[in-house]
């Protein structure tokens, strides 16, 4: 038989541990990148030229090279210049640097898409540009970006499989270990496949749901906002 139930059953515990590591990496790298991406985006739009230059080169370098190469470089090459990272730190830094660069571009696009009239209206009320960004521009940008950001986090979830190259024992790596022991590649990798699918599929459905919700406009959340003064 191609798919061996017994092998699958005995691998399930170890693979679940791997899946937990995958989810853990997704959460910490995702949270870091969602926040850091905003600051990189703002730095890229800064009036200070040096700040734009630094963040611009960072984003360009990350986007022009493969994530796999970035991870290998951080873990295997940096020790030669005295930067020794444990596997988890290397994976965390590598994945976060990568996703932050992409998300910063997403944020920047969203912020720039907010109409000039909104900037004018905020300025005319006497808002400083930092206040206008925080209270008027960014909230509008963020709302339109939520589905896109969600897609990037789902991508991150899948890309954490690359962390296996820096010996992180996530789902993919656990699968490789077991398959190397029992040679039942079909069963073990089918399990790995299904476990990714079990998390990934609901996630993309959720992103699709968010996309639909965004199209409904601001009034949909009114029921929860009926009480005046709650939001302000």
């Amino acid at each position: 038989m191609l798919f061996n139930i017994d092998n699958a059953y005995s691998a399930l515990g170890v693979l679940s541990l791997g899946l937990l590591m995958t989810i853990f990496l997704t959460i910490i790298c995702g949270a870091t990148s969602l926040v850091a991406g905003v600051f990189v985006a703002l730095a890229k739009m800064s009036k200070r030229r040096w700040l734009r230059a630094i963040t611009g080169s960072y984003v360009t370098i990350v986007r022009s090279t493969p994530l796999l190469v970035q991870l290998i470089f951080i873990y295997y090459a940096l020790p030669f210049v005295g930067i020794r990272l444990n596997p988890l730190s290397a994976a965390y830094i590598g994945l976060s640097l990568n996703v932050t660069a992409y998300l910063s571009e997403v944020y920047r696009g969203g912020i720039e898409a907010v109409s000039k009239g909104q900037h004018d209206a905020a300025a005319a009320l006497g808002m400083k540009s930092s206040v206008a960004m925080r209270r008027v521009i960014f909230p509008q940008a963020l709302r339109t970006l939520i589905p896109t950001l969600g897609n990037y986090i789902v991508s991150l979830f899948k890309d954490t499989s690359l962390a296996s190259v820096v010996t992180i024992q996530e789902l993919m790596f656990k699968g490789q270990i077991i398959a190397a022991q029992n040679y039942d590649y079909m069963t073990i990798y089918a399990m790995v496949f299904l476990l990714y699918l079990a998390v990934g599929y609901p996630s993309i459905r959720f992103v699709t749901y968010l996309e639909k919700r965004m199209k409904n406009g601001y009034a949909v959340k009114k029921a929860s906002k009926r009480k005046v003064g709650v939001a302000l």
């Binding site: 109409s115 004018d120 209206a121 005319a124 909230p139 509008q140 009114k222 906002k225 939001a231 302000l232």
Partner: peptide, 14 residues
């Protein structure tokens, strides 16, 4: 105070 031709209300606020 300024009032614009296109209103420019903040769409995310009531």
């Amino acid at each position: 105070g300024m009032v614009f031709q296109q209103f420019n209300l903040f769409p995310h606020l009531t």
